[in-house]
Write a protein that binds this DNA or RNA. Structure first.
Lengths: 326, 326
DNA sequence: CTGTTAGCGCGTTCAC
DNA sequence: GTGAACGCGCTAACAG
């Protein structure tokens, strides 16, 4: 039989209300009785039941974290950031994968509602109205993490992807690149990627920006596509929408007997560990992946505790780390 | 005001018990009244409160997942496996990182207890008695995932690491390697790694197995250590305890002007995506990372539903994928 | 097949 | 400073 707050009360010869008080520090309790209670708790090995607590207080100290796929390096890093800050503020996270499927995402918001989570941290490739409606219906505070919401209807943490795309191209331009390509996923796959592409295009003037589409952006398929493109087009600079695509580019270049950075310079997005674990080490537009998660979670705690928030859509800084591929 | 089961009952002109029945399929309900209830639920947008449900039923349909660090590729993949199967059986997971610190691990088992999780999936580098005691005290079913418990006191899912280490060395031996090294972490860092080393050593006969210790096994520090070792010792075969260490080995070999696989053959553990994203593609002892998670979760569901279990310590198969580094 | 009645373990008034 | 009593939303007997 699990020991309850009543058992502690009896053991300490006080009422359960008093026990509750010393546990939660809700009110002043005489030092002596407080000690009696604490001793009783220790003696009985009492653990407050978080479920009962959640029912009574209507707060579960649990956060729903909805992501496309934890097994992606970028996402995992972010989740780690979320969890660290959650722990710091005494929250726990329920993690679910949506595979970026709208129906599933909407359904997951519903189950988070049933779970009575205090808040949600949400990441997706494309934010649709359906999801916004789901948030609205569930009446749960949401923070978007590394997710584009052009209309900024929901609190969010992101970088300026347009500017980042622009910076990447600018970097190559300053390296005297003439024929630049942007390697990315299919259009509509990811609003973040699309936004970067727009930024990249905005920096080109009379020249044309080559755009290489690689499906979902997986290394294996991208490799072939990029190689084929390279054989037909004399590129000398590539911006890749992810480390994985950057690596595919480097290998594609090498496969056709050309050289990075001598013949083709490559700069990629993200800066996962991959970027420094390959040869040549990759120049990147670094994204603060861990911070995306950490800052999102911190913002959410503010929302939950009615702390003043001076900025509901936080823009973190990206930066260029020049290495050996440019 | 959130709508409760009472509201639905009133709307459908039945008792709350009946509503509960149609929601849970706990008993037969006349088709007509069932429909009335379902309509009422839809009309009101009712969602059952999982917290109240958990308190009443003493089952939360929540699983605690305790891992060293989600941001490690290996772990993230495993978590994905856990979550997929959890979803399939209508469970959710609370994810926490322990950083492999015993105190924290013990404490986390305690908070899982408070959260009233139905079960725990546990992964760690070194399993100590303290943790076993914590499981015992919390009285929660636990499944160890990719974690060595020599005494098999707790249900677990793992590969035969001893045999895997042996197989790796054997593979190099058959390739005519004479001077073989095992690149791993410090002794005691990870029982899994230690076990593999033992297996590796068991396969050597009169020859000596070189052992290269690389601290925590991080690429950046390992690279220097391995390079230094290589300069002093004429190795021609290396078994690395992880993909990351395998890659460090390949680069170390290249750094001193030698060649993989020509001069030195490299085989590594794990087979994360990294292994096929580098040049040369790495020969590996592949571990079923996703399956570790998936099978663990499945085993746990059996434990929770009192299904018959024919094997409490499941041994998954590893296999060698020969690629370009050997 | 359906309704009534107890709890589940805790937070939170409101008195004392 | 402390205790008694109620309610959070639901499941699970038990009747009928």
């Amino acid at each position: 039989m699990p020991v309850t707050i009543y058992d502690v009360a009896r053991e300490a010869k006080v009422s359960m209300a008093t026990v509750s008080r010393v546990i939660n520090g809700t009110a002043v309790v005489k030092d002596e009785t407080k000690k009696r209670v604490q001793d009783a708790i220790a003696r009985l090995g009492y653990r407050p039941n978080a479920v009962a607590r959640g029912l009574a207080s209507k707060r579960t100290r649990t956060i729903g974290v909805i992501v496309p796929d934890v097994s992606a390096a970028f996402v995992a890093e972010m989740v780690r950031g979320i969890e660290d800050i959650a722990t710091m503020y005494d929250y726990h996270i329920i993690l679910v994968n949506s595979d970026a499927q709208v129906d599933r995402e909407v359904s997951l918001v519903g189950t988070m509602w049933e779970k009575q989570v205090d808040g949600i941290i949400y990441m997706t490739n494309v934010l649709s109205q359906k999801e916004i409606d789901a948030f609205e219906e569930a009446q749960i505070p949401v923070v978007l993490c590394a997710t584009e919401d052009p209309e900024r209807r929901i609190p969010s943490v992101n970088i300026d992807n347009y500017r980042a795309g622009r910076d990447a191209v600018n970097f190559l331009l300053e390296k005297e690149c003439k024929e630049i390509a942007f390697v990315t996923t299919e259009e509509g796959e990811s609003v973040v990627a699309d936004r970067r592409l727009q930024g990249a295009q905005s920096r080109m003037r009379d020249q044309e920006l080559h755009v290489i589409r690689t499906g979902q952006g997986r290394y294996e398929v991208a490799l072939g596509i990029i190689r084929e493109y390279l054989e037909k087009h004399p590129l000398d600079g590539v911006v890749a929408a992810s480390d994985e695509l950057g690596l595919a580019t480097i290998h594609a270049v090498q496969d056709i007997g050309r050289h990075v950075p001598g013949d083709v310079k490559v700069i990629a997005f993200d800066n996962t560990r991959l970027a420094t674990m390959i040869r040549p080490e990759m120049t990147v537009i670094a994204q603060p992946m861990y911070d995306f998660g950490a800052v999102s979670m911190r913002l959410l705690t503010k929302l939950l505790q009615d702390e003043p928030v001076d900025n509901y859509s936080v823009t973190l800084l990206h930066n260029i780390l020049e290495r050996k591929s440019t």
